[in-house]
């Protein structure tokens, strides 16, 4: 599970940045053609994100299908895993596209991309942990819920955790999470949040692409 939650965003970011830098010539070529700018960039974004998602779904799906997961009750949890993986890919490719569009300097761009990934995957949780420990005298469940929502990696992790038996481990805090995410409303809400997480960087791709000089 960790592999998907941690590696998918990393592959998304790194590959996304790499793609947007190395396809710059291609972009310039296309820009001189009678094509709408947004079409070019969103097309490129979707191209990368979709192919990465496909490779994730096929790469994980086929072996598991052969393994016989379709017959087992795990199929829905597995589906959720793939769904969050897909969401994470879309989110982080969009973030990567933004970084690549904002920074001409490849090294800088790569640096930021890796940092964003590192931040979301590791540092964020570190800060989260520290704030939980520091403010342990206060009621923290709302805060945890909010903090989880704010990081798509954490959100996906919790979504999957709650579907696994291990959710009982989460104890009281988990009960609140379970109450929130366990229901259909919570499920849709979190998928909604993930969609917003996709939407914001995509919107920025559109905005930046309309303003950028080549």
């Amino acid at each position: 599970m960790n592999i998907i939650i941690v590696l998918t965003p990393m592959i998304g970011t790194i590959f996304g940045v790499m793609y947007f830098y190395s396809s710059r010539e291609f972009t310039e070529l296309l820009l001189a053609q009678p094509i709408r700018r947004t079409t070019i960039f969103l097309g490129q974004y979707l191209g990368v994100a979709l192919s990465l998602t496909m490779s994730l779904v096929l790469g994980l799906g086929i072996p598991f299908l052969i393994y016989g997961i379709a017959q087992s009750s795990e199929i829905w949890n597995f589906g959720l895993l793939l769904l969050s993986g897909a969401f994470l890919t879309f989110i982080f490719v969009a973030v990567a596209a933004n970084i690549a569009l904002m920074h001409e300097n490849k090294i800088k761009g790569f640096g930021y991309a890796i940092f964003i990934w590192l931040f979301m995957a590791v540092i964020y949780d570190g800060l989260f942990l520290i704030s939980l420990v520091v403010f342990e005298d206060y009621p923290l469940d709302k805060f945890s819920l909010f903090a989880t929502m704010f990081n798509p990696i954490d959100l996906s992790r919790i979504l999957i955790l709650l579907k696994l038996d291990i959710s009982a481990l989460l104890g009281y805090t988990g009960a609140i999470f379970q109450k929130f995410f366990g229901t259909n409303t919570g499920m849709f809400a979190s998928i909604g949040v993930l969609l917003v997480w996709c939407g914001i960087p995509v919107f920025f791709i559109k905005r930046i692409s309309e303003k950028k000089d080549f």
Partner: peptide
């Protein structure tokens, strides 16, 4: 701090 359990199985 029991609340920190929400970070279970995270990379950090």
């Amino acid at each position: 701090t029991p609340e920190t359990i929400v970070l279970l199985r995270s990379l950090f």
